[in-house]
Computed example of a mutant assay.
Amino acid sequence: MKTKLIATLLPLSMLLAGHASAEILKCSVKDAQIQSQIAFAKKAGNDFEVVGLEKALKENQQHCTDANQHLSAEQKVREEQEDVSKAKQEVAEAEADLRQAQAQGDTKKALKAEKKLSEKQAKLRKKNEDLSSAQADLAAFKS
């Protein structure tokens, strides 16, 4: 049982790792990924997974269009841009809080503000990475 589970999950995780940054894919790529997963599930003898994946493949083939995927990629970029803007604003606010605490000479408050600023900067870095990923997804539709 463990062997079947590992045999099914390992190729699936490898397949997904190859596209970890690409959340929005062209329909043909999604089809290929699902077909690959079906092959691994069949090889592992996981009939229930095969049935579910075949249903997913049929749904993808019936409803997925590259035009809709492109629109989704554009929307994702807009959402990520908004998130980056909000994160930048949070960093600016945290910087102002730190300057105020330092001006007051309150060491405890300044340390707390430095920690908050560090967290906000980390959040901004993550949001920038998400935006870059979304932009890469969108660029894939233009090529």
Results as ranks from 00 to 15, higher is better:
Gln102Phe: 08
His70Lys: 08
Gln37Ile: 11
His63Leu: 15
Asn46Tyr: 12
Gln104Lys: 15
Asn60Thr: 07
Lys88Asn: 05
Leu5Arg: 13
Asp47Asn: 08
Gly52Cys: 08
Glu90Gly: 05
Ala103Thr: 08
Gln61Arg: 02
Ala17His: 14
Gln62Asp: 09
Gln89Lys: 11
Phe40Val: 08
Gln89Val: 06
Glu114Asp: 06
Thr107Asn: 10
Ile6Gly: 02
Lys109Arg: 10
His63Gln: 15
Arg125Asp: 15
Lys88Leu: 05
Lys30Ala: 13
Glu82Leu: 14
Gly45Met: 07
Ala103Ser: 13
Leu71Pro: 05
Lys26Asn: 07
Glu54Leu: 05
Asp130Met: 01
Ala39His: 06
Ala20Ile: 13
Glu59Ala: 12
Gly52Leu: 13
Phe48Gln: 11
Ala20Leu: 07
Gly52Met: 13
Lys55Arg: 08
Val84Ser: 02
Ser85Thr: 09
Gln104Thr: 11
Lys116Gln: 10
Ala17Arg: 12
Ala44Leu: 03
Ala17Val: 05
Lys30Val: 11
Leu131Ala: 01
Glu93Leu: 02
Ala87Pro: 03
Lys76Leu: 03
Lys127Cys: 02
Lys4Ile: 09
Arg78Lys: 10
Glu80Thr: 06
Ser133Ala: 15
Lys86Gln: 07
Ser133Asp: 15
Leu53Trp: 03
Asp83His: 14
Ala73Pro: 00
Val77Glu: 02
Asn46Arg: 14
Glu49Gly: 08
Glu119Trp: 01
Gly105Arg: 01
Cys64Val: 04
Glu95Asp: 08
Ala44Lys: 03
Gln104Asp: 15
Asp31Leu: 03
Cys27Val: 00
Asn68Ile: 10
Ala122Met: 12
Ala41Lys: 06
Leu124Arg: 01
Ser21His: 09
Lys42Glu: 12
Glu74Leu: 11
Val29Gly: 04
Lys112Val: 09
Ala56Lys: 10
Gln75Cys: 08
Glu74Asn: 06
Pro11Trp: 03
Lys43Ser: 14
Thr65Leu: 00
Leu71Glu: 09
Ala110Tyr: 03
Leu12Tyr: 15
Gln135Met: 09
Glu90Met: 07
Leu5Val: 14
Asn60Asp: 05
Ala56Gly: 04
Gln102Ser: 12
Gln33Asp: 06
Leu10Arg: 14
Phe48Thr: 12
Val51Trp: 10
Ser36Met: 11
Ala113Arg: 03
Leu15Glu: 10
Ala56Glu: 13
Ser132Gly: 12
Lys127Asp: 09
Ala39Tyr: 01
Thr8Asn: 15
Gln61Cys: 00
Ala134His: 01
Ser72Trp: 00
Ile6Leu: 14
Ser72Asn: 09
His70Met: 03
Leu111Gly: 12
Leu53Gly: 03
Glu23Phe: 07
Ala122Asn: 03
Glu93Gly: 05
Gly18Thr: 12
Arg125Ser: 15
Glu59Phe: 09
Glu74His: 02
Ser21Ala: 14
Leu25Gln: 13
Val84Arg: 00
Lys116His: 08
Arg125Val: 06
Lys108Ser: 13
Gln81Asn: 04
Lys43Asn: 14
His70Glu: 02
Pro11Val: 04
Ile24Asp: 00
Ser133Trp: 04
Gln100Trp: 07
Glu82Thr: 13
Ala56Trp: 08
Gln100Ser: 14
Glu129Phe: 03
Ala32Pro: 04
Leu53Gln: 06
Ala87Ile: 00
Ala44Gly: 04
Ser132Val: 03
Ala44Phe: 06
Arg125Asn: 13
Lys55His: 09
Lys120Asn: 09
Lys42Arg: 09
Ser132Cys: 01
Ala22Asp: 13
Gln37Ala: 15
